[in-house]
Design a protein around this nucleic acid. Structure first.
Lengths: 194, 194
DNA sequence: ATAAGATTAATGAACGTTAATTAATACTTG
DNA sequence: CAAGTATTAATTAACGTTCATTAATCTTAT
């Protein structure tokens, strides 16, 4: 692949994640890569195509890490912990991914949302539900999955707000600490059979 | 207050919540109110001011309902449940508020984020922490508060994605059901002293 | 009559995109 | 190996549209 193309992608990922689709112009992107605006069109058909490329490039392979954690050979409760750790680590290590995902939840059209749900998170979500059924057969696996994802993700979503909150301790915004807190709550609910 | 002004506000709230600040033009808003674009400037200084008015109008008074639930005369565990119910109900009844809040978390500048944290959610957050300390003195009230908010909010955030997920049951996307699920998890963690 | 609120018209700037062209690289052919 | 030929990727210039905003004018009630 061309060097310029990946440079454009890299810059566009950053810009789109920070300012959103409408908030970024082709001129902005070209300026960030230090080429002329029309040169972008040698690598991407139009703005929409560039954005789609940004989304797929950012999202693909993200589910693999989560799947590995969920389908390992460990005891179920440990697989759950691994999943929570991985999810937390991904959100921590790749804030562009996190922001783009939030933006897609707000602005994604049907096609992009289906891609996100099925191709990116589908398998992981299914396996998370299976795991929870294994751990607590009578639970509502779907609701519980959503709830757990919320527990892990919300600290990162509220991050920009957090420094204005009382009792905020930035040192607690680490994957390890979040995993510990979430696991304490969840495992209490799942009971001690694990 | 002028009739036109409130009509503009109402239309702007809907548009900004759906498409974001950059995604909405003054033309769009004027068209929705069925007046000419420059007529907007008789009521709002510029686009920024209109947006600020949209934010404050949407956010103010939202914290009162939550505060009432948190500071009632009921037993602590019941106050927690009331809070969760109220939060869920607000997110359910006012999706514009929810979307605008998510957008502010992504795009809000320092000033607007401080307003959001301090004026809108500050008191509620503080009282939620106090309540959790009361229920479980040795807990990390800050982390736990964030986690609980995440549990309640995430079902609504994932709503656009949910219909593509396996096991999705739209009937479960109600404040009552979400409250029940969240309370089951949280009360297991808090123990039976409540 | 005066002031508020609406209109039309027009502003300069920025938008996405296309056209025409040139420099450089790679592929084919003698 | 050399010469001709595509191909790629960059440039500048310009297109038409839309953007937020302002000025000037008209309407309408108090």
């Amino acid at each position: 692949m061309s060097n310029t193309r990946t440079a454009i992608l890299k810059a566009a990922i950053l810009l789109f994640s920070q300012r959103g689709y409408e908030g970024v112009s082709m001129r902005n992107i070209a300026c960030a890569v230090d080429i002329s605006t029309p040169a972008l069109y040698n690598h991407f058909k139009d703005k929409q195509s560039l954005y789609i490329a940004v989304i797929t490039d950012t999202f693909e392979n993200k589910s693999e890490l989560l799947l590995q954690a969920l389908t390992g050979q460990d005891k179920p409760i440990l697989r759950l912990q691994n999943f929570i750790t991985r999810l937390s680590e991904v959100l921590h290590a790749d804030p562009d991914f996190h922001r783009l995902m939030q933006r897609e939840l707000l602005d994604g059209d049907e096609k992009r949302l289906r891609y996100l749900a099925q191709e990116v998170f589908g398998y992981s979500f299914q396996h998370l539900m299976n795991l929870l059924i294994e751990l607590k057969p009578d639970c509502d696996a779907h609701s519980l999955s959503v709830i757990i994802i919320g527990m892990v993700q919300k600290p990162y979503e509220l991050n920009p707000l957090d420094r204005f909150f009382p009792g905020s301790q930035p040192t607690h915004n680490t994957p390890a600490y979040i995993t510990q807190q979430v696991m304490a709550v969840v495992s209490a609910y799942l009971g001690d059979r694990a």
